[in-house]
Structures are given as structure tokens and as C-alpha cells.
């Protein structure tokens, strides 16, 4: 049986467009608001990545750090992310959800307990930023057993040899990091070059969906229409920061932003 994630990509392909993946942090800027944001952007996004915040993130840029610190300052606990997904999944237009975070949080919670909880509340995929292949082999199997897609990350520094091995062990979705950067960096490589790299990797196994992330914003997203999917994260986190600063409602702001992103790729 195809996973919800694969089905989402299938649908986008039929519509001849890349899938739009959003990333927001659970609990930013409050538990209630982050749930409302998810529900609201569901109308325009295809898959929702939801970050579970950690206070020593080594791969996140300033925007996602701000979101994470905001959530933690408001008393976010790991169990809240499960509650948020559970409630979100009850909404009528719920999309597949991918949780994303650092291994420390999973480790402390307990790998098995974490994956079980994910399954119970309806999480469809997992990204663990600092659990690279081959160290993630055991955990990735545990995810598969529980019908959760473990998303492998690939970067411009990943050698071809290593790519092949990672893709061989991967599930139905991989994530290509567009450039050497933490999240939210300014696009320092041309979209053409990124797509070239993307296509090279895609050739290794065409049946696996692959999304591009890092540096994707309203300005750049239009250049990547040929990818299977595109992730926008830091730009949205910044949107929340801006709306707080300007005393606007982040839910409305994010809805508008994601709607605009969607328009750029159809």
C-alpha cells in the first residue's frame, strides 16, 4: 500500500507541479496558534513538516532558532507535538505530516516510545537532522516497521558512492539540501546548478521522491518547478516573527504566504 506521503506526490505529479512542503515549529508562537497555522495552511500546502524544538540546534539558522526559542519559552514539551498532530489530523483537510528535529529529543524520549507515539497520532514521516546514514539504519527500520517514512538527507558534500548507499536504504522520500548552509541561508548557488545536482541524484533511483530544501523562498521557489517537491521553512518562521513584531495575526499572515508560494509553482 502506498504511503500518504507517496500519494500526495502522486497527486501533485498529476497536476504537473511540485509538491509544496511547509515547515513550522510546533508551539510557535503558542500551542494553540501553531495548530491553527497548520490547519490554515493545509489549504495550500501538500505536506506539512512540523519541527519539535530543541535548545541546542546545530544546523538551524536564526529564523528557525527564533521559532524554537519562542516555543520553548512558552513552555513547549515534547508531548505537545503529539497532541498538536493528533488534533490537526482531526481537521477535515488534513495533509501528511513529517516531524523534524534533533536526535537528542528522540533519544531522551526513547526511540521506540517516540516512534510508537508518532504512529498513534498519525505522523507520516520523520526527519532527524543529526542522525545521518549509516548511524540511522536501525532507527530507520524501526520507522518502517511502524509505517513511518524515515526521510534521508542528502547534501552537496555527499559523495556519489555514499548517495547510492543512502538511497538504497531510503524509504519513499529523500531530502536534498540545496547548498552548504544552515536552514534559512541566502541562496548562494544558482537554481540551475542546484537542479543539475538534483537531477544527478534523481537518476540514481527515479522512483524515490526527492524534495529540495534550504534557501527556498517566495522569490526563489519559481525556479525549482521541476523538482518533486519544495520545502519552505525559515521564510515561514520569519513570517511568524514579523507578524508578532507588527502585532498581526500569524495565522492570517502564514495563510497568505503559503497561498502565494503555491501560486508560484502551479
Amino acid at each position: 500500500m502506498k504511503s500518504q506521503i507517496s500519494l500526495a506526490f502522486q497527486k501533485c505529479k498529476k497536476e504537473n507541479r511540485p509538491a509544496l512542503l511547509t515547515y513550522t515549529v510546533a508551539g510557535d508562537n503558542s500551542k494553540k496558534k501553531s495548530l491553527e497555522i497548520l490547519k490554515s495552511i493545509s489549504n495550500h500546502a501538500d505536506i506539512l513538516e512540523i519541527g519539535f524544538p530543541h535548545n541546542a540546534p546545530t544546523a538551524d539558522g536564526a529564523q528557525i532558532q527564533n521559532s524554537s526559542y519562542r516555543a520553548l519559552k512558552n513552555g513547549f514539551k515534547l508531548k505537545d507535538v503529539f497532541q498538536i498532530v493528533k488534533n490537526y489530523k482531526k481537521s477535515k483537510n488534513a495533509k501528511p505530516c513529517i516531524l523534524m528535529g534533533y536526535y537528542q529529543m528522540v533519544y531522551r524520549y526513547g526511540e521506540r516510545k517516540f516512534v510508537k507515539e508518532c504512529r498513534k497520532v498519525g505522523v507520516n514521516g520523520l526527519i532527524v537532522v543529526d542522525l545521518p546514514w549509516p548511524d540511522n539504519k536501525k532507527f530507520s527500520k524501526l520507522c518502517k516497521k511502524n509505517s513511518i517514512t524515515f526521510v534521508q538527507l542528502l547534501s552537496p558534500t555527499t559523495s556519489k558512492e555514499r548517495m547510492k548507499k543512502i538511497i538504497k536504504d531510503s524509504h519513499d522520500l529523500n531530502y536534498f539540501i540545496s547548498m552548504l548552509s544552515t536552514t534559512g541561508g541566502k541562496l548562494k548557488v544558482s537554481p540551475k546548478k542546484i537542479l543539475e545536482n538534483y537531477n544527478k541524484i534523481k537518476k540514481i533511483n527515479k522512483s524515490k521522491n526527492m524534495v529540495i530544501g534550504f534557501g527556498i523562498t517566495n522569490k526563489t521557489i519559481g525556479s525549482f518547478k521541476k523538482a518533486d517537491g519544495l520545502v519552505v521553512g525559515s521564510a515561514l518562521c520569519k513570517g511568524i516573527s514579523d507578524s508578532i513584531k507588527n502585532r498581526q495575526n500569524p495565522v492570517i499572515k502564514l495563510n497568505k504566504m503559503v497561498k502565494a508560494l503555491r501560486r508560484k509553482i502551479v
Partner: peptide
């Protein structure tokens, strides 16, 4: 071979980008 001392301390919990460097 995975960088652990005593089977559980240490390792290499890094982002994919840093694996090669």
C-alpha cells in the same frame, strides 16, 4: 567503528553536510 567509547559514549551525531568534511 562508529566512534563510540564503551559502546555508548561519543559517536558522530552531525548533519549530513558535515559527514564528508
Amino acid at each position: 567503528k562508529n566512534g563510540f567509547y564503551g559502546g555508548k559514549f561519543g559517536g558522530n551525531y552531525v548533519a549530513e553536510t558535515l559527514k564528508k568534511p
